[in-house]
Nucleic acid binder design. Structure first.
Length: 497
RNA sequence: GGUCGGUUCGUCUAGGGGUCUAGGACACCGCCCUUUCACGGCGGCGACACGGGUUCAAAUCCCGUACCGACUACCA
């Protein structure tokens, strides 16, 4: 039997970092065993689901490169089938109508309300305590026929237990007495999550369910439904959660954009790097390698490598340099600096285009120059964004001067105000403006003036790039060329800021 | 409150009875290189939650405690 897995997000927000990892693991697993990776949008919560969210999730998946192998399934389209299953179970006596009036929706923190109620009960609750559970078929049918609203609940057997073997967490057992007679169909006719999931997974012929650990206890309820339906449940593998610093839940409300996939795309992350980072959150190949191509991940991915404890996505909202996880930033920098140049170029092009810095000559007459330049400056970059910000001076005359660089490397040495334009004159007189020739000129100029090489170089760096950091100045001079170097060295703009 | 699960450096993790005076990565700190640095090189700081067992031997097995998490909805 072919392995078939699915990623099943509910469209109530953007693609969350935890969901993205779930998608990744499903994808890797499917590819590793030569199975199918499917996508199902669980949009049965009409109140919270939005098309906007669906679009955002699809966008995130597309960026990460996880295209489903079959058409996307929208769960809401299957509502009729789900209803039919609930009715069938009712007919077979495996479910019953509950005529208890629907409770008013609680305001405030629902989880808290539930916990409080449970505490008030002192933890003892008879899960079978429902006056309609054993109502005669005749009376139930009659009350339904008279138009009385009802929900359909699964009739969980009195004795026994649900057991399943989780690929990550091992054997899970739960006594039936711990599971309530869960609602299958709401009184307004809408199927509920646990029913919908089971029905769809059966219909989609899902063989392995890989999802967040928050569904671990739900699994018992779902197994009960599988049993009532007489269908063999799929294999389950639950993933540890990704938490916020402090071990708290990572949420949109509290942590904002930091949890959204599109944030990383927009911040100049490479999908390959982010995938790599995500793969290492909760999974390990058991070796010391950390940089993996997609193919390597696919080849090495094993469910056994997933661990049981939650991981923390580490970041400091108050520190701009650490706005997201350090390791994610490092990983991206590693990719930017070391990936084959030819693969990086298209991304740089896109970035420069969106910053209005792109020129078609970069792929034509100036192709060699462009490639050399990108290769030179990427050494110190972290994201694609850096090409249009820190790297701006290489592609435009309109760049900003970093105040600190100006103060530290220019203003502190007032003599540079005349020395640098003088150096420009020397440059202007040069015929061969190559690395070695430039070095020769700058060195003799420095000696002649009794100045220091570092002072001259860093002053020039501030003038030519606006920054205090960057590649070797000899390379910068050569890259920018004689004309621009001369012009910028003479410019008084930075001196008058 | 109940049920279930988890706990190795600040973070991601290796390890699954002796090879562990616990390895790697990120971050941090120091030194070196150097015309700068967010590059590179070298080094440092830094963890088996706690308490009992079992065993010749426990980070690894068992029990308890603490802490954290999930679930406990006519949400998904």
């Amino acid at each position: 039997m072919t392995t078939r897995v699915r990623f099943a997000p509910s469209p109530t927000g953007y693609l969350h970092i935890g969901s993205a990892r779930t998608a990744l693991f499903n994808y890797l697993y499917a590819r590793n065993v030569g199975g199918k990776f499917l996508l199902r949008i669980e949009d049965t919560d009409m109140a919270r689901s939005t098309d906007e969210s669906t679009r955002s999730i699809l966008e995130g998946l597309q960026w990460l490169g996880f295209a489903p192998d079959e058409e996307i399934v929208f769960q809401s389209n299957n509502a009729d089938k789900h209803r039919a299953v609930a009715l069938k179970l009712l007919e077979e006596g495996k479910a019953y109508r509950d005529f208890t009036p629907k409770a008013a929706p609680s305001d405030g923190n629902i989880k808290q309300t539930i916990a409080d109620r449970a505490r008030a009960n002192q933890g003892v609750k008879d899960m079978r305590d429902n006056e309609f559970r054993d109502l005669s078929k005749e009376e139930s049918d009659q009350r339904a026929a008279s138009g009385e609203p009802f929900a359909i609940r699964l009739k969980v057997p009195e004795t026994g237990k649900t057991v399943f073997e989780d690929a990550v967490y091992g054997t899970n057992e739960r006594d039936y007495a711990e599971t309530e007679d869960l609602v299958l169909l709401r009184s307004d006719g809408h199927p509920l999550y646990n029913l919908a999931v089971v029905c769809d997974d059966i219909e989609m012929e899902i063989t392995d369910v890989i999802r967040g650990q928050d569904h671990l206890t739900n699994t018992h309820k779902q197994i009960l439904i599988y049993e009532a339906l007489g269908v063999k449940p799929p294999r389950f593998a639950h993933l540890p959660l990704i938490l916020a610093p402090g071990g708290k839940k990572l949420s949109k409300r509290i942590h904002g954009e930091i949890v959204s996939m599109t944030t990383y795309r927009d911040a100049g992350f490479l999908a390959a790097a982010f995938r790599n980072f995500l793969a290492l959150l909760g999974w390990s190949a058991g070796e010391e390698q950390e940089i993996y191509s997609l193919d390597e991940l696919i080849e090495k991915f094993k469910l056994e490598g997933i661990h049981r404890s939650n991981a923390i996505f580490n970041f400091d909202a108050n520190n701009p340099k650490r706005w997201t996880d350090d390791k994610a930033i490092w990983m991206n920098a590693e990719y930017v600096r070391t990936m084959p140049l030819a693969e990086l170029l298209p991304f740089v092009k896109t970035e420069l285009k969106s910053a209005k810095l792109w020129r078609d000559e970069y792929e034509d007459d100036d192709k060699a120059w462009f490639e050399n330049t990108v290769d030179l400056i990427r050494e110190r970059f972290f994201t694609l964004k850096d090409f249009s910000t820190q790297g701006r001076a290489y592609f435009s005359e309109d760049f900003d001067f970093d105040q600190k660089a100006v103060e530290k490397n220019l203003l502190k040495f007032s003599e540079l105000k005349t020395l640098l334009p003088e150096l420009a004159e020397r440059f202007a007189a040069m015929e061969d403006f190559s690395h070695d020739a430039i070095e020769e000129t700058v060195k003799s100029f420095t000696e002649e003036k009794g100045s220091k090489l570092g002072v001259i170089m860093n002053g020039a760096r501030a003038l030519l790039t606006g920054l205090a950091v960057g590649p070797s100045m000899l390379a910068v001079f050569e890259t920018l060329g004689k004309e621009k170097s001369v012009m910028r060295l003479k410019s008084q703009v930075a001196w008058n800021l």
